[in-house]
């Protein structure tokens, strides 16, 4: 008797914990599963919130800020949803993204000129569309502009990810979720500065999927 036929037997229960999690997140929450069970458990929507702004604050690029949302993007794009990347600071590298399961034909890179107003305009337009996620790296954002983006996200249900310098942590923001990343030696420390519906006193310690 081979192992395979044993696994086929209906009376054999396999502790597929990840499946359990996936089911839980679709029933209890509206969010996009982040691919990190620890994070999904912590967030009230069971994943990245939809129709709201998520701010990811970090000190320097290359600290895992993109890696944090890659599993969710992979899930969205493979389901046929479009994701917009508005004016990314570097070239997203296709082989790396594909290796992690993203469907490349669902990524749309929008290169604007250097003008901030074009970035914001494109962000808002994309957020009002039926895209699943819109990623932006806006330089400076005022209160009013953030609010506009929030309204745009609400209107369509798209998830907005804004990557911003850690310095903006002290400013007020209408974002539903604000995270500050701190790269430790082997893992990522996630300070949850704000989370609608939940208060966090301790940071999350997360090990990323693609550790380098």
């Amino acid at each position: 008797m081979s192992l395979h036929s044993v696994l086929q037997h209906p009376l054999i229960w396999q502790g597929k914990e990840h499946q359990f999690h996936a089911r839980r997140s679709t029933t209890t929450g509206q969010g996009w599963p982040s691919g990190y069970a620890q994070l999904d458990n912590a967030l009230p929507e069971g994943g990245w919130p939809r129709g709201m702004l998520t701010e990811i604050l970090f000190d320097y690029p290359g600290q895992g800020e993109l890696q944090l949302i890659i599993p969710a993007l992979a899930r969205m794009t493979r389901k046929g949803h479009t994701t917009f990347w508005i004016h990314p600071p570097f070239t997203p590298y296709a082989p790396a993204l594909q290796r992690q399961g993203l469907a490349l034909e669902r990524l749309l890179i929008v290169n604007t000129s250097q003008r901030q107003e074009d970035d914001l305009w494109a962000l808002e337009q994309a957020l009002r569309s039926d895209a699943a996620a819109v990623l932006g790296w806006p330089q400076k954002l005022g209160d009013r502009q953030l609010r506009r983006l929030q309204l745009a996200a609400e209107s369509s249900g798209a998830s907005a990810f804004l990557f911003r310098p850690a310095g903006s942590a002290n400013r007020n923001s209408p974002a539903a979720l604000r995270l500050h990343l701190e790269q430790m030696d082997k893992h990522l420390r996630l300070h949850i500065l704000k989370c609608r519906g939940r208060l966090f006193t301790r940071p999350l310690e997360l090990t990323l999927n693609n550790p380098a």
Binding site: P88, F90, A96
Partner: peptide, 8 residues
């Protein structure tokens, strides 16, 4: 392993 960002 490949990086997510590539410099131009």
């Amino acid at each position: 392993l490949r990086p997510n960002w590539l410099l131009n």
